[in-house]
Design a protein around this nucleic acid. Structure first.
Lengths: 195, 195
DNA sequence: AGCATAACTGAACACACGTTCAAATCAATC
DNA sequence: GATTGATTTGAACGTGTGTTCAGTTATGCT
């Protein structure tokens, strides 16, 4: 039941989020107006407020959803194994997952400045939880002697930055497949932390 | 001669650029108003237009200046040598130069979307020229057998993303000196491209 | 002291912003 | 086909935007 007469908010709602995500990714949060989002959905600006409380919360929800889904997807993929095996899985997962969601990634990495302090803290904590996954792998590998990583925290930031960077240049129509990119990056990561 | 009575635009002018750079870095180009910049300079908004043609050109000039100075600084530092030696010099230079100019780097990497197409092309070309410096080093090293780099273009993007990433987490008051950071990253880069 | 000019103010321009809300419209149920 | 309530419109709100410019102030030179 729940839904009764004249309802199709279950269609418009997702379309609002998708339009906002696309426009934020393309032009930046501050440069996109509610009227632009509404136009992309094919609706007047006022109608958006049936689906979102305000523009700030819209941005926050997009970013929170992305980070939570990222963490959840990694939990599904992660598993007990040697540090090198887990590092390879993390590297390939990160590249694949991020290349499949360029808009979400772009917004989540570029619009942190436009979050209110409270919202920023939440997203920052989620990001930190994800980075901790990699840091734990590097620490384990360092302890077992598989890796030579003098500073796991710095190495974590270095590896994350490197693999996230694919999103800035990779084009589906380009000369490389995602598999090829994963392989190239994995070899660089593997050697970069090797003992 | 040139300058005559009542002139101190040579004081206000640079202050406008500096204030704009700081505010753009902190809040983003689109989120900063001309009145905010003027307030930081201690002047009314109209006075800014003695020093800049418009907001877009202000952003463009900040980015162009940064990229040109970056290229020029590297030209001063680059020199003939083996590929590994040049790669080490590039890595250390890039980290030091970028950590010394966090605002310029932030703006130049984050506000590309807010440039008009013409201005974007100019900045993109300058960025490309800088990346080409690294790519040439990697190609030379691959040819000489010093490096194992199956795809120099991709390796260039990977190394650039990795070393540029320091600007997102490094804090002067933190536990590491710039020298220590340079050393950690250089070891990762060195191993990552090693044969 | 007076002049020339650089520097700046303060108000105005037209337009766009996020958000609200009464009224109109729509689609499903009876 | 009438009723009901979800959905959307369209106008309005107060505020802020980048930019212009006539008028005022400040500075350095003679």
């Amino acid at each position: 039941m729940a839904r009764t007469a004249g309802s199709h908010s279950d269609i418009t709602g997702p379309r609002v989020l998708k339009a906002a995500l696309q426009l934020f990714a393309r032009h930046g949060f501050a440069a996109v107006s509610m009227r632009q989002i509404a136009a992309q959905v094919g609706v007047q600006a006022g109608a958006l407020y049936n689906y979102i409380p305000d523009k700030q919360t819209l941005l926050f929800d997009l970013m929170r959803t992305h980070m939570e889904e990222l963490l959840s997807a990694w939990q599904d993929e992660a598993g007990a194994d040697t540090a090198p095996a887990r590092l390879e899985r993390f590297t390939r997962f990160h590249i694949r997952y991020h290349l499949e969601r360029p808009d979400e990634v772009f917004v989540s990495y570029m619009e942190l400045r436009n979050l209110t302090p409270d919202n920023f803290s939440v997203i920052e904590a989620l990001r930190r939880r994800y980075e901790d996954q990699l840091e734990a792998i590097l620490r384990d590998g360092a302890q077992s002697g598989d890796f030579d990583v003098p500073d796991p925290k710095v190495a974590t930031m270095a590896v994350i930055a490197m693999v996230t960077g694919v999103t800035t240049w990779y084009r589906t129509a380009g000369r490389l497949t995602v598999d090829e990119v994963q392989e190239i990056y994995w070899q660089m990561v593997r050697k970069g932390v090797s003992a």
